[in-house]
Design a protein around this nucleic acid. Structure first.
Lengths: 148, 148
DNA sequence: TCAATATAATTAGCTGGCTAATTATTTGAT
DNA sequence: ATCAAATAATTAGCCAGCTAATTATATTGA
């Protein structure tokens, strides 16, 4: 019933939603939805081909959800699926050359927005905010497991 | 490029997602998805019938997105759409009696989870976190309007 | 060894967001 | 008083997440 509890709950609903909407809006001119852009960016940051497993984990979605995004990106020539040599079940997802070029631009747009949203903040207060959010995340991981 | 900026961006992605997933899981036994539960809860909190407009704003979705949810809730006897008397375009959304009963239970589940996730936090640090998140939200509202 | 189990990717089908366009009604400006 | 613009709800169609089930391959244990 605490007022603070209610406030933080509402902010955690609203802030990421607004952030995502802004990013979507700015990336639309490049022809990417936020979902597909995330994939290109994570691959670019990784600097090497990733298994779908790993990529899905970094993007924060289920492997099954990634399949359709990869289909689209592959059809448009942004990624290729490469047989893994050790494990014939697995495929490594590679950025094409043109995708590597582009990912730098996309990253700049995302970082510019990040700066607009965060630059005015007091660094000490931001640190505290990060600490609190990390504690909430840890509590959520605890809560997943019923008390055994 | 700041490390803090990157961290808070990732946490703002992950924390609400984890929270929502937990809530979904706990409300599933009641037969509601999180989307439909939000509607019942906001109506319950309002304490009076709301226009779809107002309800959508409180839930944080577009009025058009609310239509399908209301169709489902109406079909299952949780809400009714009532012609507004002043404005014949508008409808007021009312909870049925059985929905009013239930909304208390749903609220308890949600509040219990909120407590699990937030109770261990330092109140002062939580306040700082709220302040920072509110500043980010304000910056996002600024960012929507191009520099005129 | 080889049968059971686990794992990587996929497919199918559901849920729930969004925007754009439509319909009915109201408001506002001349 | 009337016509143009705004507004409330809706519909249609897209995108993108999820879980459950499927297929192919790897791993493990009796």
């Amino acid at each position: 019933m605490s007022q603070s509890h209610q406030e933080v709950a509402e902010l955690l609903g609203a802030v990421p939603k607004a952030w995502r909407a802004l990013l979507d809006q700015r990336l639309r001119p490049y022809g990417f939805s936020q979902a597909t852009w995330q994939v290109l960016l994570k691959l670019g940051r990784a600097g090497e081909p990733l298994l779908q497993n790993e990529l899905a984990a970094r993007v924060g979605i289920e492997p099954a959800s990634l399949v359709r995004l990869l289909d689209v990106l592959q059809a448009d020539g942004w990624i290729v699926r490469q047989q893994d040599e050790q494990d014939r079940r697995a495929k490594r997802i590679c950025l094409t050359a043109k995708a590597q070029q582009l990912s730098g631009e996309l990253l700049q747009v995302a970082d510019a927005l990040k700066a607009e949203l965060l630059d005015g903040l007091d660094p000490q207060e931001l640190q505290t905010c990060i600490k609190v959010l990390a504690q909430i995340r840890a509590a959520a991981e605890q809560a997943e497991e019923p008390p055994a």
